[in-house]
């Protein structure tokens, strides 16, 4: 029942302060609020090499009510950066899905920066497991 392949132990995981610094660099030092942004990810990864994640930000995407970008971080990978999504008025909706690598159980973090300068954050723990038993 054992499946430990594929996750290759890399350099030491990103330190919490490194992740924190990346967030602050992105927000310009502003502490993000909760709300507006939702991050969807599986509770348990089926495959740590390809974990689907979706972000959605509540916004009309017109005029001042606009999402500029969303930063995705993972606090237990060798480097915390995953991707930055950039939206425009032609995006229609501030929503995007991609697939990412997770070296081990950790939190995935999404931070949204709005046109008016406000910042919002959501976080989800994704478990990376050996698996293999069942009812």
């Amino acid at each position: 029942f054992i499946a430990m392949a594929g996750l290759g132990v890399g350099p030491a995981a990103a330190a919490a302060e490194d992740t924190e610094k990346k967030i602050m660099d992105f927000t310009g030092g502003k502490a993000p609020e909760s709300g507006k942004i939702s991050l969807t990810a599986p509770e348990i990864a089926e495959n740590g090499n390809t974990v689907p994640i979706t972000v959605e930000v509540e916004s009309a995407m017109t005029g001042d009510d606009m999402v500029q970008s969303v930063l995705i971080l993972a606090d237990g990978n060798p480097n915390p950066e995953v991707a930055t999504f950039n939206f425009t008025a032609l995006s229609g909706t501030a929503a995007a899905t991609t697939r990412m690598r997770l070296a081990k159980t950790q939190s995935v973090i999404a931070v949204a920066k709005m046109a008016d300068g406000s910042v919002f954050m959501d976080k989800k723990e994704v478990k990376v497991t050996i698996g293999g038993c069942g009812g």
Binding site: I44, I130, G131, G132, C133, G134
Partner: peptide
């Protein structure tokens, strides 16, 4: 590591992280 992992799949306090075997 195997025993710990399987135990967490069985006894995690959040049922959404349980896999339901023994």
């Amino acid at each position: 590591d195997i025993l710990e992992d399987v135990a967490d799949n069985l006894f995690n306090k959040d049922p959404y992280y349980q896999q339901g075997g023994d």
